[in-house]
Design a protein around this nucleic acid. Structure first.
Lengths: 233, 233
DNA sequence: GACGGTATAATTGTATACAATCATACGAGT
DNA sequence: ACTCGTATGATTGTATACAATTATACCGTC
């Protein structure tokens, strides 16, 4: 342990700075650090091969995010993430994603509109071929485009947070869904509404899309998988 | 300078830990640190009478919030906050506040319901007397109750962030509004809908309440006041 | 005079040392 | 046996020292 593996899957992206933060964050979201567990600075530091300083900086960020609670002069405790938390995040995201679709209606650029159409075109192709990896990438990219197209730094920032949040939680569930075609169809609805300049329809479609994604995830066993890793092992 | 005034207005609340973070945050939101300004760790540290360590921890938090941007090995730059940012935050908050009202409809406790009714009763009294200080306190408390009543840690956390955000921005505008009675009336609408168990109406009322609050703030010169402190001095 | 390279300075990133606070264990007194 | 107080250890909070990186200034060359 503490082998300081510099070449893991995300290190290139979060080169050096932020590495500690993301690692701890992953460990919380993936249930490795369990609820109410006390995180000790030296222990985490040794685990990641760094000193207390970067660990403390990460702690401060995680506290702001609500993933841990820091009691002054006492310690840092994992707040954890319950099934209800995930559900709530999805509902919140649904509302804001709707807002993003609404704003995109008036703010989307031609280039973004083109990429969105192309994204859906490719998604439909890969869905028909069953290319799960590509579908997942395109799905993520679709939402990224939407966030950029809404032309709001604040909303984009918030939605990215939510999106990343649910992505990480979803990793613990089966990554394969039967939802590719439905999802793409909903993306098309959102796109068509934006293209038509119909803000109400765009908002409504984006709202429903996220709610549907949540429902699907629940049906595919989020609850069981999640409770499994939490109570078990 | 750097006199380390331990007994200022907020030190007791954010005792020691978080003091540096909140001070820097205030300075950004109040326009003391201007857009694109480079924040140097030692300079800020001396200004606040602390070393680089707490400053760095604060920087990491502020970056997560999007108030500064940290370029590795280069420096921290103030992202700033534009009029559009404030507007966007209000619209986002409007949606989520509506969600909170919706959820409160089914989750509010008797004690919370009682406090909410009492809050409105007192607000109406103080509004009639023109007690601005009490009105402001009760207004803040009303929203706090709502956040607690929605029974969602995630939503509560997010709304608190937004609320604090707009409160600090609003401080730079005239703190006196002609809106007391309207605002209280809207609070009553929200409360009545929650009490009646009408989730749709509660959500809609909360939505409108925030939008109205924003419109009122704009009318009362947010734009001018804000641009004034940004471009001027 | 313009360009490029090296040296110096400034700044951030990390580790460690010291101070303050909190938890625990032991023992004296009742 | 129980309680309180003190002492010890563990842990966090802060400051500082050192390393790495980046910016700047100077100087030589063309």
């Amino acid at each position: 342990m503490a082998n300081y593996d510099v070449k893991n899957e995300v290190t290139d992206k979060y080169s050096l700075r932020g590495r500690v933060y993301h690692k701890i964050r992953d460990n919380i979201l993936n249930g490795i650090y369990k609820e109410n567990e006390e995180l000790k600075e030296v222990a985490i530091g040794e685990e990641l091969g760094v000193s207390r300083t970067p660990v403390r900086e990460a702690f401060r960020q995680l506290e702001l995010e609500g993933l841990i609670q820091i009691i002054p002069n006492k310690g840092a405790y994992v707040t954890g993430i319950t099934v209800k938390d995930v559900q709530d995040i999805y509902m919140m995201r649904s509302k804001l994603e709707g807002l993003a679709a609404r704003w995109a209606t008036t703010n989307i650029t031609e280039a973004q509109m083109e990429e969105m159409e192309e994204n859906i075109y490719l998604s439909e192709f890969h869905a028909s071929k069953g290319h799960l990896e590509q579908i997942a990438t395109l799905d993520n990219r679709f939402h990224e485009i939407l966030y950029e197209a809404c032309n709001s730094k604040m909303l984009e920032h918030q939605l990215r947070d939510f999106h990343e949040y649910v992505l990480r939680v979803r990793k613990r569930t089966l990554s394969q869904f039967k939802r590719s075609s439905e999802s793409t169809k909903e993306h098309r609805e959102i796109m068509e509404a934006i293209k038509a300049g119909d803000a109400d329809r765009a908002e409504e479609a984006a709202n429903r899309h996220i709610v549907n994604a949540y429902d699907n995830m629940v049906k595919n066993g989020l609850k069981e998988a999640y409770e499994g890793t939490k109570k078990g092992e």
